[in-house]
Design a protein around this nucleic acid. Structure first.
Length: 513
RNA sequence: GGCCCGUUCGUCUAAGGGCUAGGACACCACCCUUUCACGGUGGUGAUACGAGUUCGAAUCUCGUACGGGCUACCA
Protein backbone atom coordinates (compact mmCIF):
# COMPACT_ATOMS: atom_id res chain seq x y z
CA UNK A 1 0.00 0.00 0.00
CA UNK A 2 2.37 2.70 1.18
CA UNK A 3 5.39 3.20 -0.96
CA UNK A 4 8.92 2.44 0.03
CA UNK A 5 10.46 4.89 2.45
CA UNK A 6 12.99 7.07 0.69
CA UNK A 7 14.35 10.21 2.27
CA UNK A 8 17.02 12.63 1.23
CA UNK A 9 19.40 15.22 2.56
CA UNK A 10 20.02 17.94 0.03
CA UNK A 11 22.76 20.33 1.05
CA UNK A 12 24.29 22.97 -1.13
CA UNK A 13 28.08 22.81 -1.16
CA UNK A 14 28.78 26.25 0.25
CA UNK A 15 30.88 25.65 3.36
CA UNK A 16 30.87 24.11 6.80
CA UNK A 17 28.16 21.66 7.82
CA UNK A 18 26.66 22.92 11.04
CA UNK A 19 24.66 21.28 13.81
CA UNK A 20 21.30 21.95 12.23
CA UNK A 21 22.34 20.33 8.97
CA UNK A 22 23.85 17.36 10.75
CA UNK A 23 20.72 16.85 12.78
CA UNK A 24 18.65 16.91 9.62
CA UNK A 25 20.97 14.23 8.23
CA UNK A 26 20.61 12.23 11.42
CA UNK A 27 16.82 12.31 11.50
CA UNK A 28 16.65 11.39 7.84
CA UNK A 29 19.09 8.56 8.36
CA UNK A 30 17.39 7.21 11.48
CA UNK A 31 13.99 7.33 9.85
CA UNK A 32 15.24 5.55 6.74
CA UNK A 33 17.02 2.82 8.68
CA UNK A 34 14.15 2.34 11.06
CA UNK A 35 11.72 1.84 8.20
CA UNK A 36 13.97 -0.22 5.98
CA UNK A 37 14.16 2.63 3.51
CA UNK A 38 16.83 4.45 1.54
CA UNK A 39 18.75 7.52 2.55
CA UNK A 40 19.86 9.54 -0.44
CA UNK A 41 22.20 12.46 -0.62
CA UNK A 42 21.57 14.96 -3.38
CA UNK A 43 23.79 17.93 -4.01
CA UNK A 44 21.88 21.15 -4.57
CA UNK A 45 24.40 23.05 -6.64
CA UNK A 46 22.11 25.10 -8.83
CA UNK A 47 23.72 28.34 -7.80
CA UNK A 48 27.13 28.39 -9.44
CA UNK A 49 28.00 31.73 -7.90
CA UNK A 50 27.92 30.14 -4.46
CA UNK A 51 29.93 27.07 -5.34
CA UNK A 52 32.78 26.56 -2.91
CA UNK A 53 35.82 24.47 -3.67
CA UNK A 54 36.08 21.36 -1.51
CA UNK A 55 32.72 21.79 0.17
CA UNK A 56 31.29 18.66 -1.34
CA UNK A 57 34.15 16.40 -0.32
CA UNK A 58 33.88 17.97 3.10
CA UNK A 59 30.20 17.04 3.39
CA UNK A 60 31.05 13.42 2.66
CA UNK A 61 33.80 13.46 5.27
CA UNK A 62 31.38 14.73 7.88
CA UNK A 63 28.82 12.06 7.10
CA UNK A 64 31.45 9.39 7.14
CA UNK A 65 32.85 10.56 10.45
CA UNK A 66 29.39 10.60 12.02
CA UNK A 67 28.63 7.18 10.58
CA UNK A 68 25.66 8.42 8.58
CA UNK A 69 26.56 7.10 5.17
CA UNK A 70 23.99 7.50 2.38
CA UNK A 71 22.70 4.61 0.33
CA UNK A 72 22.68 6.74 -2.80
CA UNK A 73 24.78 9.80 -3.63
CA UNK A 74 27.12 11.22 -6.26
CA UNK A 75 29.88 8.97 -4.94
CA UNK A 76 27.85 5.99 -3.77
CA UNK A 77 25.84 5.77 -6.95
CA UNK A 78 22.24 4.62 -7.18
CA UNK A 79 19.55 4.18 -9.78
CA UNK A 80 18.04 7.65 -9.54
CA UNK A 81 21.03 9.73 -10.59
CA UNK A 82 22.59 11.98 -11.40
CA UNK A 83 22.71 13.25 -7.85
CA UNK A 84 24.08 16.68 -8.66
CA UNK A 85 21.32 19.06 -9.62
CA UNK A 86 23.72 20.87 -11.92
CA UNK A 87 23.95 17.67 -13.97
CA UNK A 88 20.18 17.48 -14.17
CA UNK A 89 19.87 20.97 -15.59
CA UNK A 90 18.18 19.96 -18.87
CA UNK A 91 15.45 18.15 -16.99
CA UNK A 92 13.83 21.09 -15.32
CA UNK A 93 12.95 23.39 -18.23
CA UNK A 94 10.39 20.94 -19.53
CA UNK A 95 8.44 21.06 -16.28
CA UNK A 96 8.63 24.82 -16.07
CA UNK A 97 7.32 25.12 -19.60
CA UNK A 98 4.55 22.67 -18.92
CA UNK A 99 3.47 24.98 -16.11
CA UNK A 100 3.51 27.97 -18.44
CA UNK A 101 1.36 26.12 -20.97
CA UNK A 102 -1.12 25.18 -18.33
CA UNK A 103 -1.34 28.73 -17.05
CA UNK A 104 0.36 28.10 -13.71
CA UNK A 105 3.51 30.01 -14.59
CA UNK A 106 4.71 32.72 -16.92
CA UNK A 107 7.81 34.15 -18.57
CA UNK A 108 9.17 37.28 -16.96
CA UNK A 109 11.60 39.56 -18.74
CA UNK A 110 12.22 42.08 -16.00
CA UNK A 111 15.82 43.10 -15.54
CA UNK A 112 17.46 43.30 -12.15
CA UNK A 113 17.10 47.07 -12.42
CA UNK A 114 13.37 46.70 -13.03
CA UNK A 115 13.08 44.56 -9.93
CA UNK A 116 15.18 46.92 -7.91
CA UNK A 117 12.94 49.78 -8.96
CA UNK A 118 9.85 47.78 -8.21
CA UNK A 119 10.99 47.08 -4.71
CA UNK A 120 13.14 49.91 -3.53
CA UNK A 121 13.16 52.97 -5.75
CA UNK A 122 11.50 56.14 -4.42
CA UNK A 123 8.81 55.92 -7.08
CA UNK A 124 8.47 52.22 -6.61
CA UNK A 125 6.05 50.39 -8.84
CA UNK A 126 5.46 48.03 -5.99
CA UNK A 127 3.65 49.23 -2.97
CA UNK A 128 6.58 49.92 -0.73
CA UNK A 129 5.40 51.79 2.34
CA UNK A 130 6.15 51.72 6.02
CA UNK A 131 3.49 49.10 6.25
CA UNK A 132 5.04 47.07 3.49
CA UNK A 133 8.81 47.50 3.55
CA UNK A 134 9.46 44.68 1.13
CA UNK A 135 6.96 44.52 -1.72
CA UNK A 136 6.79 41.17 -3.39
CA UNK A 137 6.50 40.26 -7.04
CA UNK A 138 2.96 39.01 -6.61
CA UNK A 139 -0.56 39.28 -7.97
CA UNK A 140 -0.71 42.94 -6.97
CA UNK A 141 2.08 44.00 -9.23
CA UNK A 142 2.67 41.30 -11.78
CA UNK A 143 0.39 43.08 -14.24
CA UNK A 144 2.65 46.12 -14.02
CA UNK A 145 5.80 44.21 -14.96
CA UNK A 146 7.28 42.94 -18.22
CA UNK A 147 6.12 39.37 -18.53
CA UNK A 148 4.07 37.05 -20.69
CA UNK A 149 0.98 38.12 -18.80
CA UNK A 150 1.33 41.75 -19.82
CA UNK A 151 3.05 41.43 -23.19
CA UNK A 152 1.32 40.28 -26.39
CA UNK A 153 2.07 36.74 -27.46
CA UNK A 154 3.85 38.05 -30.58
CA UNK A 155 6.10 40.11 -28.41
CA UNK A 156 6.75 37.22 -26.06
CA UNK A 157 7.60 34.93 -28.94
CA UNK A 158 9.92 37.52 -30.37
CA UNK A 159 11.72 37.99 -27.09
CA UNK A 160 11.96 34.25 -26.67
CA UNK A 161 13.36 33.59 -30.14
CA UNK A 162 15.85 36.41 -29.62
CA UNK A 163 16.90 34.53 -26.50
CA UNK A 164 16.23 37.51 -24.32
CA UNK A 165 17.13 36.91 -20.69
CA UNK A 166 14.08 35.73 -18.85
CA UNK A 167 12.93 33.66 -15.95
CA UNK A 168 9.86 31.57 -15.38
CA UNK A 169 7.75 32.48 -12.38
CA UNK A 170 4.96 30.60 -10.74
CA UNK A 171 1.61 32.37 -10.97
CA UNK A 172 0.26 32.14 -7.47
CA UNK A 173 -3.53 31.89 -7.39
CA UNK A 174 -5.26 34.82 -5.78
CA UNK A 175 -7.53 33.57 -3.11
CA UNK A 176 -6.83 29.99 -2.38
CA UNK A 177 -5.90 28.39 0.86
CA UNK A 178 -3.13 25.86 0.65
CA UNK A 179 -3.22 23.39 3.48
CA UNK A 180 -0.99 20.47 4.20
CA UNK A 181 -0.20 18.21 7.11
CA UNK A 182 3.21 18.59 8.68
CA UNK A 183 4.11 15.45 10.63
CA UNK A 184 5.37 17.36 13.61
CA UNK A 185 3.20 20.47 13.47
CA UNK A 186 -0.11 19.19 12.26
CA UNK A 187 -2.19 21.20 9.82
CA UNK A 188 -0.53 24.30 8.38
CA UNK A 189 -2.27 26.64 5.98
CA UNK A 190 -1.43 29.65 3.87
CA UNK A 191 -3.38 32.20 1.89
CA UNK A 192 -1.89 32.10 -1.60
CA UNK A 193 -2.55 35.82 -2.11
CA UNK A 194 0.18 36.51 0.39
CA UNK A 195 2.81 34.40 -1.31
CA UNK A 196 4.91 35.90 -4.09
CA UNK A 197 5.42 34.62 -7.62
CA UNK A 198 8.63 32.76 -6.94
CA UNK A 199 11.15 32.29 -9.72
CA UNK A 200 11.15 28.67 -10.85
CA UNK A 201 13.68 28.76 -13.63
CA UNK A 202 16.51 31.26 -13.58
CA UNK A 203 17.85 33.22 -16.52
CA UNK A 204 20.83 30.89 -16.78
CA UNK A 205 18.50 27.96 -17.29
CA UNK A 206 19.09 26.52 -13.83
CA UNK A 207 16.08 25.81 -11.66
CA UNK A 208 15.70 27.48 -8.30
CA UNK A 209 15.39 25.35 -5.22
CA UNK A 210 11.61 25.48 -5.47
CA UNK A 211 11.35 23.80 -8.83
CA UNK A 212 14.29 21.49 -8.30
CA UNK A 213 13.10 20.01 -4.99
CA UNK A 214 9.73 19.14 -6.35
CA UNK A 215 10.97 17.68 -9.61
CA UNK A 216 13.83 15.76 -8.03
CA UNK A 217 11.82 14.50 -5.09
CA UNK A 218 9.32 13.18 -7.59
CA UNK A 219 11.88 11.63 -9.91
CA UNK A 220 13.82 10.15 -7.01
CA UNK A 221 10.62 8.77 -5.47
CA UNK A 222 11.13 10.52 -2.16
CA UNK A 223 8.45 9.52 0.34
CA UNK A 224 9.19 11.89 3.24
CA UNK A 225 10.83 15.27 3.31
CA UNK A 226 12.47 16.34 6.55
CA UNK A 227 14.02 19.78 6.33
CA UNK A 228 14.61 22.83 8.48
CA UNK A 229 11.84 25.11 9.66
CA UNK A 230 13.22 27.91 7.49
CA UNK A 231 11.52 26.16 4.58
CA UNK A 232 8.07 26.26 6.05
CA UNK A 233 7.25 29.62 4.48
CA UNK A 234 7.88 28.38 0.99
CA UNK A 235 6.04 25.12 1.50
CA UNK A 236 2.86 26.43 -0.16
CA UNK A 237 4.83 26.96 -3.37
CA UNK A 238 6.06 23.39 -3.21
CA UNK A 239 2.63 22.01 -2.47
CA UNK A 240 1.15 23.88 -5.43
CA UNK A 241 3.93 22.65 -7.69
CA UNK A 242 3.19 19.10 -6.63
CA UNK A 243 -0.46 19.63 -7.33
CA UNK A 244 0.15 21.08 -10.82
CA UNK A 245 2.92 18.74 -11.89
CA UNK A 246 2.47 15.34 -10.33
CA UNK A 247 -0.71 15.38 -8.27
CA UNK A 248 -1.12 15.69 -4.53
CA UNK A 249 -1.37 11.93 -4.15
CA UNK A 250 2.24 11.60 -5.19
CA UNK A 251 3.44 14.25 -2.77
CA UNK A 252 5.81 13.16 -0.01
CA UNK A 253 4.92 13.75 3.60
CA UNK A 254 6.48 16.82 5.14
CA UNK A 255 8.14 17.44 8.45
CA UNK A 256 9.74 20.80 9.21
CA UNK A 257 12.36 20.42 11.89
CA UNK A 258 12.71 23.05 14.62
CA UNK A 259 15.75 25.28 14.47
CA UNK A 260 18.78 24.90 16.66
CA UNK A 261 19.44 28.18 18.44
CA UNK A 262 22.58 29.77 19.83
CA UNK A 263 22.96 32.00 22.90
CA UNK A 264 21.37 34.93 21.04
CA UNK A 265 18.89 33.49 18.60
CA UNK A 266 19.75 31.42 15.57
CA UNK A 267 22.90 29.39 15.98
CA UNK A 268 25.60 30.73 13.72
CA UNK A 269 29.23 30.23 12.95
CA UNK A 270 29.88 33.47 14.79
CA UNK A 271 28.34 32.13 17.99
CA UNK A 272 30.93 29.40 17.89
CA UNK A 273 33.92 31.68 17.65
CA UNK A 274 32.40 34.12 20.12
CA UNK A 275 31.51 31.64 22.83
CA UNK A 276 34.21 29.10 22.14
CA UNK A 277 32.33 26.03 21.04
CA UNK A 278 32.19 24.29 17.68
CA UNK A 279 29.18 24.54 15.40
CA UNK A 280 30.50 22.49 12.49
CA UNK A 281 30.76 18.71 12.52
CA UNK A 282 34.36 18.85 11.33
CA UNK A 283 36.83 21.67 10.90
CA UNK A 284 36.21 23.73 7.82
CA UNK A 285 38.81 25.82 6.06
CA UNK A 286 37.49 28.54 3.82
CA UNK A 287 39.44 28.11 0.59
CA UNK A 288 39.38 31.84 -0.12
CA UNK A 289 40.23 33.34 3.22
CA UNK A 290 42.03 30.32 4.70
CA UNK A 291 39.99 30.94 7.83
CA UNK A 292 39.65 27.75 9.86
CA UNK A 293 36.60 27.00 11.97
CA UNK A 294 37.13 24.16 14.38
CA UNK A 295 34.68 21.26 14.33
CA UNK A 296 33.38 18.83 16.91
CA UNK A 297 35.67 16.09 15.68
CA UNK A 298 38.81 18.14 16.09
CA UNK A 299 37.61 19.49 19.40
CA UNK A 300 37.72 15.95 20.72
CA UNK A 301 34.21 14.62 20.31
CA UNK A 302 33.40 11.00 19.63
CA UNK A 303 31.01 10.44 16.75
CA UNK A 304 28.91 8.29 19.08
CA UNK A 305 28.47 11.21 21.45
CA UNK A 306 27.94 13.67 18.64
CA UNK A 307 24.97 11.85 17.14
CA UNK A 308 23.67 11.06 20.60
CA UNK A 309 23.37 14.66 21.74
CA UNK A 310 22.20 15.77 18.32
CA UNK A 311 19.40 13.21 18.41
CA UNK A 312 18.30 14.41 21.84
CA UNK A 313 18.24 18.03 20.73
CA UNK A 314 14.56 18.09 19.92
CA UNK A 315 13.69 14.45 20.34
CA UNK A 316 13.38 11.89 23.15
CA UNK A 317 11.95 8.43 23.33
CA UNK A 318 9.47 9.25 26.08
CA UNK A 319 11.54 7.60 28.81
CA UNK A 320 14.33 9.07 30.87
CA UNK A 321 17.00 7.32 28.83
CA UNK A 322 19.58 9.69 27.42
CA UNK A 323 22.50 7.62 26.28
CA UNK A 324 21.72 5.85 23.04
CA UNK A 325 23.87 3.92 20.61
CA UNK A 326 23.19 4.46 16.95
CA UNK A 327 21.39 1.11 16.82
CA UNK A 328 19.19 2.10 19.74
CA UNK A 329 18.39 5.39 18.09
CA UNK A 330 17.37 3.59 14.92
CA UNK A 331 15.12 1.34 16.92
CA UNK A 332 13.54 4.07 19.04
CA UNK A 333 13.38 7.04 16.71
CA UNK A 334 10.06 8.39 15.59
CA UNK A 335 9.54 11.63 13.75
CA UNK A 336 6.25 12.25 15.55
CA UNK A 337 8.12 12.66 18.82
CA UNK A 338 10.26 15.47 17.47
CA UNK A 339 9.52 18.76 19.20
CA UNK A 340 7.99 21.64 17.42
CA UNK A 341 9.84 24.29 19.41
CA UNK A 342 13.37 25.43 18.65
CA UNK A 343 16.16 24.13 20.88
CA UNK A 344 18.99 26.19 22.27
CA UNK A 345 22.30 24.41 21.93
CA UNK A 346 23.99 23.76 25.29
CA UNK A 347 27.67 23.05 24.90
CA UNK A 348 28.02 21.93 28.52
CA UNK A 349 25.49 19.21 27.97
CA UNK A 350 27.16 18.20 24.73
CA UNK A 351 30.41 17.74 26.65
CA UNK A 352 28.61 15.69 29.25
CA UNK A 353 27.45 13.31 26.52
CA UNK A 354 31.00 12.99 25.30
CA UNK A 355 32.26 12.26 28.79
CA UNK A 356 29.62 9.57 29.20
CA UNK A 357 30.68 8.01 25.93
CA UNK A 358 34.36 8.04 26.80
CA UNK A 359 33.50 6.26 30.04
CA UNK A 360 31.25 3.83 28.22
CA UNK A 361 33.57 2.87 25.38
CA UNK A 362 36.10 0.12 25.98
CA UNK A 363 39.84 0.60 25.76
CA UNK A 364 40.07 -1.05 22.39
CA UNK A 365 37.66 1.40 20.73
CA UNK A 366 39.40 4.36 22.31
CA UNK A 367 42.94 3.28 21.61
CA UNK A 368 43.63 4.55 18.13
CA UNK A 369 41.96 7.87 18.87
CA UNK A 370 44.12 8.35 21.95
CA UNK A 371 47.20 7.48 19.92
CA UNK A 372 46.24 10.28 17.54
CA UNK A 373 45.80 12.77 20.36
CA UNK A 374 49.15 11.89 21.91
CA UNK A 375 50.87 11.93 18.55
CA UNK A 376 49.66 15.50 18.05
CA UNK A 377 51.57 16.36 21.19
CA UNK A 378 54.70 14.52 20.15
CA UNK A 379 54.18 11.41 22.24
CA UNK A 380 54.66 8.33 20.09
CA UNK A 381 55.81 4.74 20.20
CA UNK A 382 54.02 3.75 23.37
CA UNK A 383 53.99 0.10 24.20
CA UNK A 384 50.53 -1.32 23.64
CA UNK A 385 50.13 -2.84 27.09
CA UNK A 386 51.15 0.42 28.72
CA UNK A 387 48.77 2.45 26.61
CA UNK A 388 45.89 0.17 27.52
CA UNK A 389 46.62 0.50 31.22
CA UNK A 390 46.90 4.26 30.92
CA UNK A 391 43.61 4.58 29.09
CA UNK A 392 41.89 2.44 31.70
CA UNK A 393 43.28 4.62 34.46
CA UNK A 394 42.41 8.01 32.96
CA UNK A 395 39.35 7.61 30.76
CA UNK A 396 36.89 8.48 33.53
CA UNK A 397 38.64 11.81 33.93
CA UNK A 398 38.45 12.83 30.26
CA UNK A 399 35.57 14.88 28.91
CA UNK A 400 37.06 15.43 25.47
CA UNK A 401 39.45 13.14 23.64
CA UNK A 402 42.01 15.90 23.75
CA UNK A 403 41.95 15.65 27.55
CA UNK A 404 43.82 12.37 27.22
CA UNK A 405 46.99 14.36 26.79
CA UNK A 406 46.59 16.42 29.97
CA UNK A 407 45.55 13.33 31.87
CA UNK A 408 48.27 10.99 30.70
CA UNK A 409 51.39 12.89 29.76
CA UNK A 410 52.66 12.21 33.26
CA UNK A 411 53.22 8.60 32.32
CA UNK A 412 55.45 9.52 29.44
CA UNK A 413 57.33 12.55 30.62
CA UNK A 414 59.65 12.60 33.61
CA UNK A 415 58.85 15.71 35.67
CA UNK A 416 61.25 18.60 35.35
CA UNK A 417 59.59 20.70 37.99
CA UNK A 418 58.04 19.71 41.27
CA UNK A 419 55.47 21.35 43.48
CA UNK A 420 58.09 21.70 46.23
CA UNK A 421 55.97 24.16 48.21
CA UNK A 422 53.49 21.40 48.92
CA UNK A 423 56.17 19.18 50.38
CA UNK A 424 59.17 21.08 51.62
CA UNK A 425 57.64 22.93 54.58
CA UNK A 426 56.77 19.61 56.20
CA UNK A 427 59.83 17.78 55.04
CA UNK A 428 62.05 16.25 57.71
CA UNK A 429 64.71 13.71 58.44
CA UNK A 430 62.21 10.95 59.12
CA UNK A 431 60.61 11.36 55.72
CA UNK A 432 64.01 11.39 54.09
CA UNK A 433 64.82 8.09 55.77
CA UNK A 434 61.45 6.66 54.90
CA UNK A 435 61.98 7.22 51.20
CA UNK A 436 65.45 5.76 51.42
CA UNK A 437 63.94 2.64 52.88
CA UNK A 438 61.09 2.62 50.38
CA UNK A 439 63.58 2.86 47.57
CA UNK A 440 65.55 -0.09 48.91
CA UNK A 441 62.36 -2.07 49.30
CA UNK A 442 61.09 -1.29 45.82
CA UNK A 443 64.49 -2.01 44.38
CA UNK A 444 64.18 -5.57 45.61
CA UNK A 445 60.58 -6.01 44.57
CA UNK A 446 59.92 -8.64 41.99
CA UNK A 447 56.19 -8.25 42.21
CA UNK A 448 55.75 -4.83 40.55
CA UNK A 449 52.08 -4.05 40.72
CA UNK A 450 49.94 -1.43 42.40
CA UNK A 451 48.63 -3.71 45.10
CA UNK A 452 51.93 -4.99 46.39
CA UNK A 453 53.57 -1.58 46.01
CA UNK A 454 50.90 -0.12 48.24
CA UNK A 455 51.20 -3.01 50.66
CA UNK A 456 54.94 -2.53 50.99
CA UNK A 457 54.52 1.20 51.37
CA UNK A 458 52.03 0.78 54.21
CA UNK A 459 54.16 -1.84 55.95
CA UNK A 460 57.14 0.45 56.07
CA UNK A 461 54.93 3.23 57.37
CA UNK A 462 53.58 1.00 60.08
CA UNK A 463 57.05 -0.10 61.14
CA UNK A 464 58.14 3.49 61.47
CA UNK A 465 54.91 4.55 63.17
CA UNK A 466 54.21 7.20 60.60
CA UNK A 467 51.00 8.43 58.96
CA UNK A 468 50.22 7.41 55.38
CA UNK A 469 48.74 10.80 54.57
CA UNK A 470 52.02 12.54 55.24
CA UNK A 471 53.88 10.40 52.77
CA UNK A 472 51.38 9.74 50.04
CA UNK A 473 51.39 13.30 48.77
CA UNK A 474 55.19 13.55 48.67
CA UNK A 475 55.33 10.30 46.72
CA UNK A 476 52.78 11.59 44.25
CA UNK A 477 54.70 14.77 43.73
CA UNK A 478 57.92 12.81 43.27
CA UNK A 479 56.33 10.70 40.56
CA UNK A 480 54.39 13.29 38.63
CA UNK A 481 55.52 16.69 39.86
CA UNK A 482 52.22 17.91 41.22
CA UNK A 483 48.90 17.19 42.86
CA UNK A 484 47.21 15.44 39.99
CA UNK A 485 46.76 12.13 38.26
CA UNK A 486 45.22 8.76 39.11
CA UNK A 487 46.12 6.66 42.17
CA UNK A 488 49.80 6.91 43.08
CA UNK A 489 50.47 3.19 43.07
CA UNK A 490 48.68 2.75 39.79
CA UNK A 491 51.01 5.34 38.36
CA UNK A 492 54.02 3.57 39.81
CA UNK A 493 52.90 0.28 38.37
CA UNK A 494 52.60 1.70 34.86
CA UNK A 495 55.87 3.61 35.18
CA UNK A 496 57.71 0.43 36.03
CA UNK A 497 60.47 -0.12 38.55
CA UNK A 498 63.24 1.67 36.81
CA UNK A 499 61.36 4.87 36.01
CA UNK A 500 59.65 4.99 39.40
CA UNK A 501 62.93 4.73 41.28
CA UNK A 502 64.52 7.21 38.91
CA UNK A 503 61.78 9.77 39.61
CA UNK A 504 61.97 9.27 43.38
CA UNK A 505 65.69 9.75 43.32
CA UNK A 506 65.45 12.83 41.17
CA UNK A 507 62.81 14.47 43.35
CA UNK A 508 64.52 13.62 46.59
CA UNK A 509 67.33 15.98 45.70
CA UNK A 510 64.75 18.77 45.41
CA UNK A 511 63.19 18.22 48.81
CA UNK A 512 66.22 17.57 50.94
CA UNK A 513 68.29 20.67 50.42
C1' G B 1 5.30 45.96 8.27
C1' G B 2 3.05 41.18 6.35
C1' C B 3 2.78 35.87 6.61
C1' C B 4 4.09 31.36 9.12
C1' C B 5 5.92 28.65 13.36
C1' G B 6 6.80 28.39 18.43
C1' U B 7 6.48 29.35 24.24
C1' U B 8 7.16 23.86 31.12
C1' C B 9 13.24 24.99 35.98
C1' G B 10 19.24 29.14 33.40
C1' U B 11 19.52 24.89 29.32
C1' C B 12 17.52 20.07 26.92
C1' U B 13 12.99 18.00 28.11
C1' A B 14 8.65 14.37 30.57
C1' A B 15 3.64 14.71 31.91
C1' G B 16 -1.11 14.35 25.40
C1' G B 17 -7.89 17.03 31.48
C1' G B 18 -6.89 14.96 37.64
C1' C B 19 -0.08 16.67 39.77
C1' U B 20 3.86 16.86 45.71
C1' A B 21 4.60 19.30 37.75
C1' G B 22 9.25 14.01 36.79
C1' G B 23 14.37 13.41 34.68
C1' A B 24 19.12 15.22 32.68
C1' C B 25 23.03 19.25 32.14
C1' A B 26 24.81 23.31 34.93
C1' C B 27 24.99 25.26 39.99
C1' C B 28 25.22 24.60 45.58
C1' A B 29 25.88 21.33 49.99
C1' C B 30 27.35 16.82 52.14
C1' C B 31 29.66 11.81 51.63
C1' C B 32 33.66 8.91 49.34
C1' U B 33 38.86 9.98 48.14
C1' U B 34 44.58 12.79 53.06
C1' U B 35 45.78 14.87 44.80
C1' C B 36 42.01 15.80 41.42
C1' A B 37 38.27 13.53 38.96
C1' C B 38 34.70 9.50 38.88
C1' G B 39 30.81 7.89 41.99
C1' G B 40 26.83 8.51 45.87
C1' U B 41 23.09 11.51 48.64
C1' G B 42 20.39 15.92 49.01
C1' G B 43 19.12 21.03 47.56
C1' U B 44 17.91 25.71 44.75
C1' G B 45 14.91 26.15 40.37
C1' A B 46 9.56 26.10 35.55
C1' U B 47 4.03 25.53 33.21
C1' A B 48 4.82 33.82 29.72
C1' C B 49 0.14 36.70 30.79
C1' G B 50 -5.32 37.20 30.56
C1' A B 51 -10.00 35.29 29.58
C1' G B 52 -13.10 31.05 28.39
C1' U B 53 -14.64 25.50 28.26
C1' U B 54 -14.76 21.89 32.48
C1' C B 55 -16.28 19.15 38.78
C1' G B 56 -11.10 19.73 37.43
C1' A B 57 -6.15 22.63 32.55
C1' A B 58 0.78 22.72 31.76
C1' U B 59 -2.58 19.86 28.69
C1' C B 60 -8.58 22.22 24.84
C1' U B 61 -10.28 27.46 22.65
C1' C B 62 -9.51 32.70 22.01
C1' G B 63 -6.74 37.12 22.88
C1' U B 64 -2.08 39.57 24.42
C1' A B 65 3.09 39.48 25.11
C1' C B 66 7.65 37.52 23.89
C1' G B 67 10.96 34.54 20.69
C1' G B 68 12.17 32.59 15.91
C1' G B 69 11.77 31.85 10.56
C1' C B 70 10.49 33.69 5.73
C1' U B 71 9.61 38.01 2.86
C1' A B 72 16.45 37.03 -3.62
C1' C B 73 17.09 34.95 -10.72
C1' C B 74 20.50 31.68 -2.19
C1' A B 75 19.67 27.27 -0.58
Amino acid sequence: MSKKVRVRFAPSPTGGLHLGGMRTVLYNYLFAKKNGGDFVLRIEDTDQSRYVEGAEEYIFSCLKWAGLVPDESPIHGGSYGPYHQSERKELYRKYAEQLVKEGHAYYAFDTTEDLEKMRHAPMAIGVKTDHNPSPQYDHNIRMKMRNSLTLSSEEVNKLLTERTNHVIRIKMPEHETVTFIDIIRGEVSFDTSLVDDKVLLKADGMPTYHLAVVVDDYLMKISHVFRGEEWLSSAPVHVLLWKYLFGLNEMPQWAHLPLILGPNGKLSKRDGVKYGFPVFAMSWTDPKTAEVVEGFKEKGFLPEAFINFLALLGWNDGTEKEIFTKEELIEKFSIERVHSGGAKFDYEKAKWFNHEWIKKLNVESLKWKVIEVLKEKGITGIEDAVLEKVITLVKDRCTLLTDFYEQSFLFFKTPEKWDVDAVKPKWNEAKQLFFAELTRNYQLSNDWNAISLEKNFKEIIAMNEMKPGELLLPLRIMLVGGKFGPGVFDIAEVLGKEETLHRIKLALTQFSN
